[in-house]
Write a protein that binds this DNA or RNA. Sequence first.
DNA 1: GTCCAGGGTTCGT
DNA 2: ACGAACCATGGA
Length: 221
Amino acid sequence: MRFFTVYQHLFDAYGCQHWWPGDTPFEIMVGAVLTQNTAWTNVEKAIANLVAADSLNAESMHRMPAERLAELIRPAGYFNVKAKRLHNFCSWYLAEGGFDSLKKWPDLELRQGLLAVNGVGPETADDMMLYAFERPVFVIDAYTRRIFQRLGLVVGDEGYEHLRAEFESRLRSEIDQSEAARVGLYNEYHALIVHHAKEACRTKPICAQCCLRGCCQSTLN
DNA sequence: GTCCAGGGTTCGT
DNA sequence: ACGAACCATGGA
């Protein structure tokens, strides 16, 4: 089965997801750190706290003592760890001249720069690459791995980079598209996977009737 | 009320 | 290479 076929089934079933929720690239990047191991509803509360404190910007967050930042982002969980990660991220972001400067970086350098900040791992970096900088990188998460493993399209225990390269090259060989079109596809594809895995398949189990059969049975194994 | 799923990154061992 | 630590929230 083609990877693009899976996308078509998801899109037909759920439609456009309009990710990422966030008004500015910086907000998206903060959200990417906050959402590590946590439900998005909790991230929204943390972001609302930052907005209410008029502090959803790199300068305020960087200037703020870690304890204060931790207090604001508390609803997102792991608040001490994340306050430190956000601090690290903001100091890198400011040192490199902010979004307007970073957006000019080539894909590879930007990704490596992101990865070099302590607290930003591959998935978080790729969320930022795709959703804040609109670069054509396919985001791999636990749902992606699980669903495609069950469909027999990947083995499942490949490393992150391996899986990402696999998705990108498979999709590129299946359909010919511009860079902008790939950004749009990867954006929507990841959003659809998350939506399908989290709740859609409980309320609207499309995978029972189509080629996705079996992709989201009970979480055991 | 209690239990526990959920899930990325870093840092020990 | 692998396990532990980090934590709030909400649903069973």
